[in-house]
Amino acid sequence: MDIYLKYLLIGLAIALPVGAITIEMTKQGLKNGFLHGWAVGLGGMTIDFALIVLMSLGFASFLSLPFIQIPLWMVGAGFLAFLGYDSIKNADKDITPADEKTKKSFWSTYRNGLLVAVSPGNLVFWVSVFGTVLSESYISSDKWNFAGAAIGVLSGILIHDLGLLSIVSVTRKVMSRKMIRAVSVIAGVLLIGFSIYFVYEFILALLPYIS
């Protein structure tokens, strides 16, 4: 229980800073309601869960290899640039008033969550946070340490997502179409900004191998 609570707080803390997932969740929540914002969060948590499973199977050292992490900067940059461009281009589309049922597919927003979560930053977080827990679980007679930590972090992220989307759902009811369109444009610019940062990190990571 102590491990669960400790890592629940870690999950909540890591989810609080504004990142690409938060931006996409907020945008989809404002345009199409709680369920679609939640779909983005579920997409992100699917990637998180997949990484947990891979590490539990012993892939932590493989995932931390430079030739695995470095290309992911460009993959992540490409996905975020695409989502950012799409967000700006379609800022005035797919906006559903709070009193109407959205026609947008749940799975399309879930896919966006998957794309945003594919980033080396996410990978590095899981490998670094759970590297110690994995080592301790192999040494300790208690084999549930890793599972407790994983469930704790996912619970923290879940609490953050539900809290954020609850606020977004209330805010959406008082926002005009023009305001939501402006938020979509801002979200697109921020996502493109993250993609440029990923390209910068890719170049930095590559320099030692080409100099």
Results as ranks from 00 to 15, higher is better:
Leu5Pro: 07
Lys6Gly: 04
Tyr7Val: 11
Leu8Tyr: 01
Leu9Ala: 08
Ile10Lys: 01
Ile14Tyr: 03
Ala15Cys: 03
Leu16Ser: 04
Pro17Ile: 00
Val18Leu: 07
Val18Asn: 02
Val18Lys: 05
Ile21Pro: 07
Lys27Leu: 10
Gln28Gly: 09
Lys31Met: 08
Gly33Pro: 12
Gly33His: 12
Phe34Arg: 14
Trp38Arg: 14
Ala39Thr: 05
Ala39Ile: 07
Gly41Ile: 13
Gly41Leu: 06
Leu42Thr: 12
Ile47Pro: 06
Asp48Arg: 02
Phe49Ser: 14
Ala50Cys: 12
Leu51Glu: 01
Leu54Cys: 02
Leu54Ser: 07
Leu54Arg: 03
Ser56Asn: 10
Ser56Arg: 13
Ser56Ile: 05
Leu57Lys: 09
Leu57Ile: 08
Ala60Cys: 07
Leu63Pro: 06
Phe67Met: 04
Phe67Arg: 03
Ile68Leu: 08
Gln69Arg: 09
Met74Tyr: 02
Val75Ser: 01
Gly76Ile: 02
Gly78Asn: 04
Ala81Trp: 08
Phe82Ala: 09
Gly84Phe: 09
Gly84Ala: 02
Tyr85Asn: 10
Tyr85Leu: 15
Ser87Asn: 03
Lys89Val: 11
Lys89Thr: 05
Lys89Cys: 02
Ala91Gly: 04
Asp92Ser: 13
Asp94Cys: 11
Asp94Arg: 14
Thr96Phe: 10
Pro97Ile: 13
Pro97Trp: 13
Ala98Arg: 11
Asp99Val: 08
Ser105Glu: 12
Ser108Met: 15
Ser108Leu: 15
Thr109Ile: 12
Asn112Tyr: 08
Leu114Lys: 11
Leu115Pro: 04
Leu115Ile: 06
Val116Asp: 06
Ala117Ile: 12
Val118Met: 12
Val127Leu: 00
Val129His: 03
Gly131Arg: 00
Gly131Ser: 01
Thr132Cys: 00
Val133Trp: 00
Leu134Thr: 00
Ile139Cys: 00
Ser141Tyr: 07
Trp144Ser: 15
Gly148Cys: 08
Ala149Asn: 01
Ile151Gln: 09
Val153Gln: 03
Leu154Ser: 08
Gly156Trp: 02
Ile157Met: 11
Leu158Gln: 10
Leu158Ser: 14
His160Arg: 05
Asp161Gln: 13
Leu164Asp: 07
Leu164Arg: 04
Ile167Glu: 12
Ser169His: 15
Arg172Ile: 07
Met175Val: 12
Lys178Thr: 13
Ser184Cys: 05
Ile186Leu: 13
Leu190Trp: 13
Leu190Phe: 14
Leu190Val: 09
Leu191Gly: 10
Ile196Val: 10
Val199Thr: 07
Val199Glu: 02
Phe202Val: 05
Leu204Ile: 07
Leu206Cys: 01
Ile210Trp: 04
Ser211Arg: 10
